Computed example of a mutant assay.
Amino acid sequence: MHTRTLIAIAGAVVLTTTAVVYIGLSAVRNRGAAVVGTAGAVTLTPGPELLARSTADADRGHLVTVSATDPGGPRAVSPVSCTRVHAAGGTGICLRQDSDLTTEVVVLDEQLEKKREVPLFGLPSRARVSPSGRMVTWTVFVTGDSYSGGTFFSTRTGILDTATGEGTRTLEDYAVTVNGEPYSAADVNFWGVTFAKDDNRFFATMSTGGRRYLVDGDFASRTVRTVRENVECPSLSPDGTRLAFKSAVDGGPARGWRLSVLDLSTAAVTPLAEPRNVDDQAVWIDDRTVAYAIPRGIGHSDVWSVPADGSGTPRLLLPDGESPAVLG
């Protein structure tokens, strides 16, 4: 297990370095941060609200909720802090980083009370909850894999069934099929899981041999199979027919990423009307709109949205926020 998962691309190394700097700054600024401007209690109860991690100076790192119909309006602020967060079906996942580079994966109930905790070593990267709230997944950056000589960052992605307690610490243990053939390699690497409504099927990104694939996974059988290349951080639409994803510009992550939508039945790809670099796992606001975070200076970011059919222009959805989730 510990001799696998290299992100075998220079751009990803740049990304992880940026993540280390950002997380370090966030950890420093979170100490002594004040919780202000509450407009009611923060809960994960399903309803017409958006959840996010605040990047405002006054409540940096704290979980906030806003009205889905007025996301720029008053926000409720929770005392709970996370580095990455997501929620659905009344369940939340909160990735918290300690000063010794360990990460706590905390499963939260509707009232933000801790239901379960999984200690990990690494830097928080991605977090997702299945639409029902049953399945949770996380990705962390790690170092020390033997094939990389301890020089590069790799990732470790796990999945937990909160109903049964069953799970896997790393998708590297799954049987992999590449282009219809069984595949095994030391550098297989996963990140960015998104769940289907059946709490079994999922999609994710797999990297190996310098290539990045969209994979279709099966939790029960512990298998994944490749679907197509240059698809990262997929996000399944509420109707289950499309995937929003980021793709490396000209196949090179060092050039940045652009958002697109993949139709699963036709394999048609629709570039979205967001010209900026989007290094995020997008979320669907509804079947017509996707949202994502764009950094703004050091330690700040905003949540933007754009139509999923390639039309329109980007719209500022939630100032001073990141890691958004739709509760309703």
Rank of each mutant, 00 (worst) to 15 (best):
residue 41 A to M: 10
residue 164 T to N: 06
residue 69 T to L: 09
residue 176 V to P: 02
residue 118 V to Y: 10
residue 82 C to K: 01
residue 274 E to G: 00
residue 303 V to H: 10
residue 258 R to Y: 08
residue 226 T to G: 09
residue 119 P to Y: 10
residue 67 S to Y: 05
residue 145 D to T: 12
residue 119 P to F: 05
residue 184 S to Y: 08
residue 1 M to D: 14
residue 102 T to F: 03
residue 294 I to S: 02
residue 239 D to G: 07
residue 67 S to V: 03
residue 115 K to Y: 02
residue 213 Y to V: 01
residue 84 R to C: 00
residue 295 P to G: 07
residue 262 L to N: 01
residue 114 K to S: 14
residue 61 G to A: 06
residue 2 H to A: 12
residue 80 V to F: 00
residue 324 P to D: 11
residue 188 V to L: 14
residue 255 R to V: 01
residue 319 P to S: 12
residue 66 V to E: 03
residue 156 R to C: 06
residue 290 V to N: 07
residue 37 G to S: 14
residue 32 G to Q: 10
residue 116 R to G: 01
residue 170 T to D: 15
residue 296 R to K: 13
residue 228 R to M: 13
residue 35 V to H: 07
residue 46 P to L: 05
residue 303 V to Y: 05
residue 60 R to K: 06
residue 120 L to E: 14
residue 268 A to W: 01
residue 146 S to R: 10
residue 122 G to A: 09
residue 147 Y to H: 10
residue 219 F to H: 05
residue 287 D to N: 15
residue 30 N to F: 01
residue 286 D to L: 03
residue 154 S to R: 12
residue 295 P to W: 02
residue 213 Y to C: 04
residue 112 L to A: 10
residue 233 C to R: 08
residue 69 T to D: 15
residue 168 T to D: 14
residue 215 V to F: 09
residue 312 G to D: 01
residue 152 F to I: 10
residue 236 L to W: 01
residue 5 T to H: 15
residue 190 F to C: 12
residue 136 V to Q: 10
residue 154 S to G: 15
residue 132 S to N: 08
residue 43 T to K: 02
residue 67 S to L: 06
residue 29 R to Q: 12
residue 180 G to N: 12
residue 151 T to S: 11
residue 97 Q to C: 02
residue 201 R to T: 15
residue 257 W to C: 02
residue 296 R to T: 05
residue 186 A to F: 13
residue 7 I to L: 15
residue 258 R to S: 15
residue 269 V to C: 07
residue 4 R to F: 07
residue 193 V to D: 03
residue 206 M to T: 09
residue 178 V to L: 13
residue 282 A to V: 05
residue 165 G to E: 12
residue 263 D to T: 07
residue 40 G to M: 09
residue 67 S to C: 05
residue 205 T to H: 11
residue 119 P to V: 04
residue 240 G to I: 01
residue 145 D to Q: 14
residue 71 P to W: 03
residue 159 I to F: 07
residue 44 L to M: 06
residue 156 R to G: 06
residue 81 S to Q: 14
residue 238 P to D: 10
residue 136 V to H: 08
residue 315 R to P: 00
residue 75 R to I: 01
residue 275 P to Y: 11
residue 193 V to R: 08
residue 231 V to P: 09
residue 42 V to P: 02
residue 92 G to S: 04
residue 68 A to Q: 12
residue 279 D to S: 13
residue 3 T to A: 14
residue 291 A to R: 04
residue 31 R to D: 13
residue 54 S to R: 01
residue 206 M to F: 07
residue 50 L to A: 08
residue 134 R to D: 06
residue 325 A to G: 11
residue 57 D to Q: 09
residue 287 D to K: 08
residue 145 D to A: 11
residue 13 V to Q: 15
residue 49 E to Q: 14
residue 255 R to F: 10
residue 22 Y to F: 06
residue 227 V to T: 06
residue 76 A to S: 15
residue 2 H to L: 07
residue 13 V to Y: 05
residue 57 D to I: 08
residue 14 V to M: 08
residue 264 L to P: 02
residue 152 F to R: 10
residue 159 I to A: 06
residue 20 V to D: 07
residue 295 P to M: 04
residue 206 M to E: 13
residue 324 P to Q: 11
residue 55 T to V: 03
